[in-house]
Simulated assay, not measured.
Amino acid sequence: MATRQTAEAKIDAIQDKGNNTAQEVRDVLTEILNYTENKPFPAIPEIDSFHFWTEKNPVYDRFQNSLHYSVKGFAKQFINLTFRIEIFTPSAAGSNISDNVFEFPLDEKHIKYLKYLQDIIVPLNTINVSFIIPYRYSNDKQIIDHPLSVSIYFTEKTIVFDFNNVKNANNSKEELVISRGSSYTSVTWHYPPFNLGKV
């Protein structure tokens, strides 16, 4: 069986500026080939990927605000969410619901994929990390893009956009009502094992 040592020995036997025959060169190349074929490649770990998305139509919340979503990632690694959310009816216009919180139903066939999120990357029913996303709206004179802070999380059957990080100025605790508008962007979750308790 060819080894690294036998391959190196044949290479060393090649004469510098010498008259090496074609047979000698073939012997060296064959030895190298035999060595590489005998040396196994490291095993490639199996990667469990997932992808689910709204293929044609968006999903709607109770006030007919719409959401297109695409969730893609690798188990035990990370997930990416690309989405387009359109707010036609701000939640403050309704009654008995939290201002600036929009809850959209997941497509029924996508609920099985939540196993990739639950206990791995994004705990269900938990407000976790916040994102800064671009939000576009019109004030009847111009179209304005500005950044908004939002917490995005999943429940057993829904995806929730919580804009309650938006506060009024002047140290007021009052929440700002999200204007009619839209956002089309991507966010990514990756949960490292941080110790976020008290030091």
Results as ranks from 00 to 15, higher is better:
Ser98Ile: 07
Asn80Trp: 07
Arg62Ser: 10
Tyr135Leu: 07
Lys72Thr: 10
Tyr35Leu: 00
Thr30Arg: 13
Ala43Asp: 06
Leu114Lys: 02
Lys72Asp: 11
Asp27Glu: 10
Phe52Cys: 01
Phe131Thr: 06
Ile133Val: 15
Phe83Pro: 00
Asn20Leu: 05
Val71Ser: 13
Asp99Ser: 08
Pro58Arg: 11
Asn19Ile: 06
Asp27Leu: 13
Thr54His: 00
Ser66Asn: 07
Ile44His: 15
Glu55Asn: 15
Asp119Cys: 14
Arg62Glu: 09
Pro134Arg: 04
Leu81Asp: 03
Ile44Glu: 13
Leu124Asn: 02
Phe74Asp: 14
Ser70Asn: 11
Glu103Val: 11
Glu31Trp: 04
Leu114Thr: 05
Thr30Asp: 09
Phe88Asn: 15
Leu29Asn: 11
Ser95Phe: 14
Asp107Glu: 06
Glu103Gly: 06
Glu103Ser: 15
Val28Gln: 02
Val28Pro: 01
Phe41Tyr: 05
Thr126Ala: 13
His68Pro: 03
Arg62Trp: 05
Ile44Asp: 15
Leu67Val: 03
Pro58Ala: 14
Asn96Ser: 14
Asn34Gly: 02
Thr36Gln: 00
Glu37Gly: 03
Glu31Ser: 03
Ser49Thr: 06
Arg84Trp: 04
Lys109Ile: 05
Pro58Met: 10
Val25Leu: 01
Phe50Asp: 01
Pro90Asn: 10
Ile132Arg: 12
Phe41Ala: 10
Glu31Asn: 06
Gln23Gly: 11
Ile111Tyr: 01
Asn100Gly: 02
Phe83Thr: 00
Phe102Ile: 03
Pro40Gln: 10
Lys109Met: 02
Phe88Gly: 07
Ile127Gln: 09
Val129Trp: 11
Leu67Ala: 03
Asn19Leu: 08
Phe102Ala: 00
Gly73Phe: 04
Phe52Trp: 05
Asn100Val: 00
Pro105Leu: 10
Gly18Pro: 00
Pro42Gln: 06
Ala43Met: 06
Ala75His: 07
Leu117Lys: 04
Phe131Met: 12
Tyr69Pro: 05
Thr21Ala: 09
Thr21Gln: 08
Tyr116Trp: 12
Ser91Met: 15
Gln23His: 11
Pro90Arg: 10
Ala93Gly: 06
Asp119Gln: 11
Lys39Thr: 15
Leu117Gln: 12
Ser66Asp: 10
Tyr135His: 12
Thr30Ala: 15
Tyr35Asn: 07
Asn34Met: 03
Ile79Leu: 08
Gln77Glu: 05
Lys76Gly: 07
Asp27Lys: 07
Ile97Cys: 09
Lys112Tyr: 05
Ser98Ala: 10
Asp27Ala: 11
Pro105Glu: 07
Gly73His: 06
Ile133Asn: 12
Thr89Gln: 11
Gln23Thr: 14
Leu33Ser: 03
Val28Cys: 11
Pro134Val: 09
Gln77Pro: 02
Ala75Cys: 01
Lys115Cys: 13
Pro134Met: 05
Glu24Trp: 12
Leu67Asp: 00
Lys76Arg: 15
Lys56Pro: 07
Thr89Ile: 12
Lys112Gly: 03
Gly94His: 10
Phe63Gln: 14
Asp61Pro: 00
Asn20Ala: 00
Val122Pro: 00
Asn34Tyr: 01
Tyr60Cys: 09
Tyr113Leu: 00
Pro123Val: 09
Asn34Gln: 04
Arg84Leu: 04
Ile85Asn: 05
Asn38Ala: 13
Asn20Arg: 04
